[in-house]
């Protein structure tokens, strides 16, 4: 166990060096999401102002609540997308030759991909995280049933995100075309996960696809706990499903790593999937 923690610490150093103080983090993890958030808000505003909108969706009636709804979506999406980005970077280790050095070491492979994802998440998302907390406090939009729900919301955001990162790391490190996966997980991800729309507005088949992504349920919990005064009972379904997904992602990551490494050991070729 302590060896695994040391691996995580090592990965944290790597991500710190890669990301800390990089202007790209400031732009891609704060500025662009905020500009996009504003554009999204104005784009859907005409619809929300229609006479019937607030009957179908009470949030539509109050621009501040609408903005908070969209901002929560942007925050969670930024968390999850930062892991897509870091997995994409991780896949370059194959090209640069350091992946081989990792496989040479006795480090637990799972600890490596988890550590890598967790470290990337902290390096990437702390800025937007702090900003979101400050903005939410200042705008006074939070509506929380009891203080414990802050913890629930934070865990529901971070733990599945780390599992998601571990899964993506395991997938992209062996994949032939990581650029394609990267594109696939950018815009389509926010669309199916209900980042910019309440889930009820999505057609059933899109919802079905979205349910498979932890971002969708993380977002349900985040919005419910922080904006809608939901308590554990209200969120039990989403939380339960989130646990299932998280465990599933960890298991999938572990299977991918095992299969991938076995395949590499057989063929000597690092591109597997």
């Amino acid at each position: 166990m302590s060896h695994a923690l040391r691996v995580v610490a090592a990965e944290a150093l790597k991500q710190h060096r890669r990301l800390f103080g990089q202007p790209l983090v400031l732009f891609s993890m704060l500025l662009w999401p905020l500009l996009t958030l504003a554009a999204t808000y104005y784009t859907v505003l005409p619809v929300m102002e229609s006479a019937t909108a607030s009957q179908r969706w009470p949030v539509a009636a109050d621009p501040r609540r609408l903005l908070a709804f969209l901002a929560a979506g942007a925050l969670a999406y930024t968390f999850f997308f930062s892991l897509v980005q870091s997995a994409w970077h991780f896949s370059f280790e194959r090209v640069s030759g350091t992946l081989e050095a990792l496989f040479l070491s006795p480090a637990n492979r799972m600890a490596l991909v988890i550590g890598n994802g967790a470290a990337a998440l902290t390096q990437n998302a702390w800025l937007f995280g702090c900003f979101a907390v400050a903005a939410a406090t200042a705008a006074d939009v939070l509506d929380v049933a009891h203080p414990g729900m802050y913890v629930v919301a934070a865990l529901a955001l971070v733990v599945p995100a780390v599992a998601w990162g571990a899964f993506l790391n395991s997938l992209l490190i062996f994949s032939r075309d990581s650029a394609f996966l990267y594109t696939l997980l950018d815009d389509p991800l926010w669309f199916v996960a209900g980042v910019r729309l309440p889930l009820f507005a999505l057609p059933v088949w899109i919802k079905a696809v979205g349910v498979a992504f932890p971002l969708t349920s993380s977002l349900v919990v985040l919005r419910g706990a922080l904006l809608d005064r939901a308590d554990l009972g209200d969120l039990a379904g989403a939380l339960g499903w989130l646990v299932v997904l998280t465990v599933g992602l960890f298991l999938a990551a572990s299977a991918l790593l095992r299969l991938g490494e076995a395949r590499v050991q057989r063929t000597g070729n690092l591109q597997v999937f």
Binding site: P46, M48, E49, T183
Partner: peptide, 29 residues
């Protein structure tokens, strides 16, 4: 594909919002 997806999904969000939330109408503004 990335650029096209951005465009298509922007339209998609508006379309869904317009039908499912706006009820096919927009505000006076």
């Amino acid at each position: 594909v990335g650029t096209l997806a951005t465009g298509v999904l922007t339209i998609g969000v508006s379309l869904l919002a317009y039908r499912a939330i706006g009820g096919g109408r927009v505000g006076a503004s």
